[in-house]
């Protein structure tokens, strides 16, 4: 089975949100995804990286680590921060729930990731950080 992987680290600046999603799209393009599949992946990455920046690091400076793995026609994406962590992951994953309503957040981040990817797992420890693992299998291959 064909395998490939990449790792990217960048500071938690909001300008890097577009950088991260373009990098993943470029890496995923070797699987010949459709435009729709590629937009799905870009949107999910954008949500995960935005969460790391706003909630993980609460707009302070930290490092966001992005890892991608390809196995056959399956793409796995990990977005990890060493920020404050999520107290109640189940609650955070509820549609429309946001811990920061004052920021005009919609509370749809995890719901978008779940909808646009095939699977979503969230590992978090308070005071240590959060890791989001998402997979998507490209049908077009």
């Amino acid at each position: 089975m064909f395998k490939n992987e990449m790792k990217l680290e960048f500071p938690s600046k909001s300008v890097n949100e577009s950088f991260a999603r373009v990098v993943v799209a470029a890496f995923a393009s070797q699987l010949d995804p459709t435009l729709e599949e590629l937009s799905d992946v870009k949107t999910a990455v954008s949500e995960a990286v935005t969460n790391a920046i706003i909630h993980g690091y609460e707009n302070t400076e930290g490092i966001v680590t992005l890892r991608c793995y390809i196995e056959g026609n399956k793409l796995t994406i990990e977005v990890e921060d060493n920020g404050k962590g999520i107290e109640n992951v189940e609650l955070a994953r509820q549609p429309l729930y946001t811990s920061r309503p004052e920021l005009e957040r919609s509370g749809m981040g995890f719901t978008v990731m779940e909808t646009f990817m095939d699977s979503l797992e969230v590992y978090s420890e308070v005071g240590k950080g959060t890791k989001v693992v998402m997979t998507k299998t490209f049908k077009s291959v």
């Binding site: 577009s18 949500e47 005009e104 749809m108 981040g109 719901t111």
Partner: peptide, 13 residues
């Protein structure tokens, strides 16, 4: 060409 859930917040606001 691209919008994520941050855009939802802008519209609802």
């Amino acid at each position: 060409n691209f919008m994520d859930s941050s855009g939802i917040g802008v519209i609802i606001g």
